[in-house]
């Protein structure tokens, strides 16, 4: 459905997107993951024919973004980061306008507006001015706008940014619903890791304009979760804590790959314990600490930040490459 081939986009001298290639099958929900400024929005803008690529290209639903932009535009729905709304229009009026613009025939228009209002749960604000709507409703009107012409491909740029937790959950549900109901192929960008796990089937990770990884969510979670990292804070009951002793004891636990001292104040010390893949060491760590006669003040898994994911992914890629070279 989507085929991106060595896509590059430069703004003057800065390279925003650097030779990215990936493919997306029909009906997939793909998460486009990366920190702010990674090139997510730029890539999406190229795919929606808003910006032309500097080199390379992309095929959307069988049409080239450079050579047949009109055909591509007919087949995509796009929700930019800031929903493109006209505050002086009523919701239904706005949806009709976008529908006509995207090529919905006059006879189908009223029906389509009804349908998307139902899907996005904005029926109760149909005749309200968009300028008076809350942020959550605006986002949903933005989504309704993107699906009004029942496009093959749906491109959503940070659809949950700036929403409150309840609205975020609702929006994710809606996106999943859309993939089921309309058989849309969906690309959504985000910088929130759990969002991808909850909504997407496939992940494309980019950083600083470069493709870091493309994988299915299960594989990726496996790769990331396999090696767990936990934060441990221990306290000696009588005076100074013997740091080297503590470090040694933690390192001896089977399955632990690395122990890093994070903080040390008097009798208290905090360590970060990394485990090998497929080893759960939390219980062993707790037991080791107690057996040594220390207090266990804290024991919690460290949530992996996006930065860590990048580090880990790039590192593991380098390792596999090195291993491949050695063989």
């Amino acid at each position: 459905m989507i085929k991106v081939d060595r896509l590059t986009k430069r703004y003057g001298r800065t390279v925003a997107v650097d030779e990215i290639s990936f493919t997306v099958e029909k009906g997939q929900i793909v998460g486009f993951l990366g920190p702010n400024g990674a090139g997510k929005t730029t890539t999406m803008r190229v795919l929606t024919c808003f910006l032309p690529p500097t080199s390379g290209g992309a095929t959307m639903a069988g049409f080239d973004v450079l050579k047949q932009p009109l055909e591509v535009k007919k087949r995509i729905g796009y929700l930019p980061e800031i929903p493109p709304l006209y505050p002086e229009m009523e919701v239904a009026e706005y949806l009709s306008f976008v529908g006509r613009l995207k090529g919905v025939s006059k006879s189908n228009l009223a029906r389509r507006v009804d349908e998307v209002c139902g899907l996005c749960a904005i029926g109760d604000v149909r005749f309200k001015l968009i300028g008076r709507l809350s942020k959550g409703y605006r986002q949903r009107v933005g989504l309704a706008q993107a699906i009004i012409h029942n496009p093959d491909i749906l491109i959503l740029d940070e659809p949950t940014a700036g929403l409150d937790p309840k609205q975020i959950i609702e929006t994710r549900e809606l996106i999943k619903e859309l993939a089921k109901v309309g058989e849309h192929t969906i690309i959504l960008s985000t910088h929130i890791l759990p969002e991808v796990e909850q909504t997407c089937e496939k992940v494309i990770i980019i950083n600083k304009g470069k493709l870091v990884a493309t994988d299915s969510v299960e594989n990726l979670t496996h790769r990331l979760r396999g090696a767990e990292s936990i934060s441990v804070e221990i306290e000696s009951r009588n005076g100074e804590l013997d740091l080297s002793e503590a470090q040694r004891r933690l390192e001896q636990i089977p399955g632990v790959s690395r122990v890093i001292l994070k903080d040390n104040k008097g009798p208290r010390a905090a360590f970060e314990v990394e485990s090998l893949e497929k080893h759960v060491v939390r219980g062993d760590v707790a037991r080791a600490v107690v057996e040594a006669g220390w207090n266990l003040n804290e024991l919690r898994p460290v949530a992996m930040s996006l930065e860590d994911v990048f580090l880990q992914l790039t590192a593991s890629d380098a390792e596999t490459a090195a291993a491949g070279g050695a063989q």
């Binding site: 055909e71 796009y78 930019p80 800031i82 505050p87």
Partner: peptide
């Protein structure tokens, strides 16, 4: 300013 130009320029309009 409002970003609606993105809607117009990604619609099948010349």
């Amino acid at each position: 300013r409002t970003g609606t130009i993105e809607l117009l320029m990604t619609s099948p309009v010349r």
